[in-house]
């Protein structure tokens, strides 16, 4: 019975956090660029506007189903990440999943999207998807290396157990093993499709890449799932490194702090080309990761 309340609540929380954070991001960028920027609700307006578009173009059944798969993938990912600790609420189905499962679930949605983009027959979209997969190949190596170190440290693959093992600030992974956080941080930014690793959907270089053919309500779905999946990733990193949260306010504050960090990094660096990004991931974060492995396991 609890699931009936939990599921809509978790989706609502991620969606709300999503548009607020991204609304804030646009404000933040505007202030950095010395302008006023849109209201903090702007992302909600944009999203609802797309849902109220009266025409939506489809390139066939697979094109239509792709965004649905993507949304279902995002929803499933959100529901398999526990939001809070020390409580029976907002756990979703996390008892039936684990960290590795969640990491792979995050790829299911993009697969659906890739199928839809392919079905549209637009070469720009496929070009974007290929770049996205290439970037994924680059970022997953250091990202998973960091996560593996966490799993070795806590000897479990369960997110709830990792969260429960960090009750106080002194036991946060961020404090006990800050090197892992450094390893994971930049790949994490890339997995959010944020600058400077946002060449996949670059509007000028590849004509907005995978989204090139999506308009109307389908684009609305893509925006929604993007906001929700991003927030799911933030919640996951908060759970792994910052000890999770016991209530929604704490969760919101921690996600906000992490969001500020990533937004500040995104705001100041120029965009990298795909191969530059991959090469970067395999040199700097992966090198750091190898150092972390040597320091924590071998010595």
């Amino acid at each position: 019975m609890r699931a009936l309340i939990d599921v809509p609540l978790m989706l609502l929380v991620t969606y709300t956090m999503g548009f607020f954070m991204y609304g804030f991001y646009r404000q933040f960028m505007a202030r950095i660029q010395n302008r006023r920027g849109p209201p903090i609700w702007q992302n909600l307006y944009d999203n609802l506007k797309f849902f109220s578009k009266s025409e939506t173009l489809s390139h066939g059944p697979m094109f239509f189903l792709g965004p649905m798969i993507m949304m279902a993938g995002a929803v499933t990912t959100v529901l398999f990440i526990p939001m809070l600790k020390d409580t029976a609420w907002l756990q979703g189905f996390s008892a039936s999943g684990n960290l590795i499962l969640v990491m792979f679930l995050m790829v299911v949605g993009p697969l659906g999207n890739a199928l839809a983009v392919g079905a549209s027959g637009n070469p720009f979209g496929v070009m974007g998807v290929t770049r996205g997969l290439t970037r994924l190949m680059g970022l997953e190596v250091p990202f998973f290396l960091g996560l593996a170190l966490i799993m070795v440290q806590y000897e479990t693959v369960s997110i709830s157990a990792i969260m429960a093992a960090q009750p106080t600030l002194a036991e946060w992974t961020l404090v006990t093993n800050p090197l892992i956080f450094l390893v994971v941080l930049l790949p994490f930014i890339a997995s959010l499709n944020a600058s400077p690793f946002d060449v996949v959907g670059a509007p000028v270089e590849v004509y907005s890449g995978p989204r090139v053919e999506f308009g109307g309500r389908l684009l609305g779905i893509l925006m929604t799932q993007n906001m929700m999946l991003s927030m799911a990733k933030y919640v996951l990193v908060v759970a792994l490194f910052m000890g999770g949260a016991s209530n929604l306010l704490e969760l919101f504050v921690k996600v906000f702090v992490l969001f500020m960090l990533t937004a500040s990094i995104s705001a100041v660096f120029p965009r990298l080309r795909t191969e530059q990004a991959v090469d970067f991931f395999w040199r700097i974060p992966l090198g750091l990761g190898v150092v972390a492995v040597i320091l924590t396991l071998w010595i």
Binding site: R26, A30, R35, R36, G37, P38, P39, Q42, Y45, D46, L57, P203, V204, Y207, S208, R211, V212, E213, F214, G215, G216, L219
Partner: peptide
């Protein structure tokens, strides 16, 4: 113009 909610789109679909 972004303060009015006006922002550039890359493709006609959007």
């Amino acid at each position: 113009a972004e303060r009015f909610g006006i922002i550039g789109a890359a493709t006609p679909r959007q």
